[in-house]
């Protein structure tokens, strides 16, 4: 199978930009990243279809000269799914903005707690509590 180099490079650039945007914190940027990346992936499907040919309409063109229609059907599905996803992410970003005043993806709560404890050089609550309260004397820690 021969590929189209321009298509491959464009797809690569789009996916790379998408990945870069995906590493941002703001949900809006992440969404743009997903959209850009999605388009790159769609181009990849076009690439997978092989060299471009005539429209795949039976009876109008000889079968050998037609483009493979299957990847186009897949791209169509992917586009529909991406659309639904963007609608959902926009809603979520807006809700996040309503609640927090920003649309940032925040860290894991637990991670943050542990990091704070580490900075204070402290132990967690659960560690200090390790005693069997029914006996009252069987202290494990300390």
């Amino acid at each position: 199978m021969s590929g189209n180099l321009t298509l491959a490079i464009v797809a690569g650039v789009l996916v790379a930009s998408g990945v870069y945007l995906l590493t941002e914190r703001s949900l809006t940027r992440i969404l743009i990243g997903v959209l850009v990346m999605g388009n790159g992936v769609n181009l990849l499907f076009m690439l997978a279809a092989g060299p471009a040919g005539n429209p795949p309409l039976l009876g109008m063109f000889p079968t050998e000269s037609m483009t493979d229609p299957l990847p186009q059907a897949m791209v169509l599905t992917a586009i529909v799914i991406t659309m639904a996803v963007s609608a959902f992410v926009v809603t979520m970003a807006y809700r996040s903005f309503q609640l927090n005043g920003n649309d940032e993806v925040s860290d894991d709560v637990e991670d943050r707690r542990i990091r704070e404890l580490a900075e204070r050089d402290d132990v967690s609550d659960s560690y200090e509590d390790t005693s069997f309260s029914d006996a009252g004397e069987d202290m494990v820690s300390e």
Partner: peptide, 23 residues
């Protein structure tokens, strides 16, 4: 939001894998 972003990424990867397999 964390869950959605992670899964969006994995869906994109799945699509890329599909394109490669088809090719």
């Amino acid at each position: 939001s964390i869950y959605v972003v992670v899964n969006l990424l994995s869906s994109m990867l799945f699509l890329i894998a599909l394109a490669n397999i088809y090719a």
